[in-house]
Design a protein around this nucleic acid. Structure first.
Length: 269
DNA sequence: AGCTCATGGCGAG
DNA sequence: TCGCCCTGAGCTG
């Protein structure tokens, strides 16, 4: 269950395990048999992430385009690989490592032109060096849509998901229902810089931690978070629990089919 | 065994 | 805005 940091990490992990060498490809589940057959035994030449999209590049040239969606998972292991189960969409096998892909929204073989078209419809990604926050600002600053919805729109910003959107809005004291056009330039610049820093830490540790050092469980003498997403956060999935800063109960409400979390005191309209 | 929920996104209406 | 697609864990009986 990934946000952009997971995908950038996966791009690096794939290159580390398979890069520059021939890879065996198969689709035990069968839904990607044709694509796997075309890639099989070719060298992996590069890997790349843009937002939540993963691209594995092969000699040919050709790309495997992967989007994990809400349920997709990639798992690595060392050879010998165990017999694959019937939910494995794609298995990559190298000399010493294998990778199993399950449950993705997308796993398809695409051309370089098709890859370019995907980049073109995605917004700037805080984790891609050189990506331009002004492109996002152009959309945000003229939109009546809430900032919470805009942050989830991959055409506006690529890679932010439900956890980072809730947490970055909290860290900047911004009410999630504020219209994009009412966000100031300074606020957006600060949020972009913060997202880049938080997501880089996310890549490094392979989990989402957003709590500042002075607010950690150790610093504040409270119990550490125990939750299946793993990280220390201010508001995500903390509905009805006290805000770490002011004690107000964290609120939750559906927004664009996802659960939004915020502190009504720290995030004033 | 069946339900609900989860860090997403698409197309129909 | 809704329904649908993908999987698995953690409940409930």
């Amino acid at each position: 269950m990934p946000e952009g940091h997971t995908i950038h990490r996966l791009a690096a992990d794939h290159y580390e395990r398979f890069g520059g060498r021939p890879v065996r490809a198969s689709s035990p589940q069968g839904k990607f048999s044709d694509g796997a057959a075309l890639i099989d035994a070719r060298p992996m030449t590069s890997t790349e992430a843009h937002g939540k999209h993963l691209f594995l590049g092969f000699d040919g040239p050709a790309w495997i385009h992967i989007h994990l969606g809400l349920f997709g998972k990639l798992g690595f292991g060392t050879t010998p690989a165990p017999p694959s189960t019937d939910t494995v969409r794609l298995r990559l096998l190298g000399e010493s490592d294998y990778a199993d892909l399950r449950g993705p929204t997308t796993c398809a073989l695409i051309t370089d032109a098709e890859k370019q078209a995907i980049h073109a419809r995605l917004g700037p990604d805080p984790l891609r060096p050189g990506d331009d926050p002004d492109k996002a600002w152009h959309r945000i600053s003229r939109s009546r849509t809430t900032i919470a919805a805009l942050l989830m729109d991959q055409k506006v910003v690529a890679g932010v998901g439900n956890v980072y959107r809730a947490e970055v809005l909290f860290r900047h004291g911004i009410d999630p229902y504020r219209a994009g056009k009412d966000v100031t330039r300074a606020e957006w610049d600060a949020m972009w810089a913060d997202l880049a820093a938080l997501m880089r830490e996310g890549v490094r540790h392979n989990r989402i931690d957003t709590v500042r050092p002075e607010h950690t469980p150790e610093a504040m003498n409270r119990a550490p978070r125990v939750d299946d997403h793993g990280g220390e956060v201010y508001v995500y999935r903390r509905a009805s629990m006290p805000c770490h800063l002011c004690g107000t109960e964290i609120r939750t409400a559906p927004l664009a089919a996802r659960n939004l979390f915020w502190c009504p005191t720290c995030q004033k309209p």
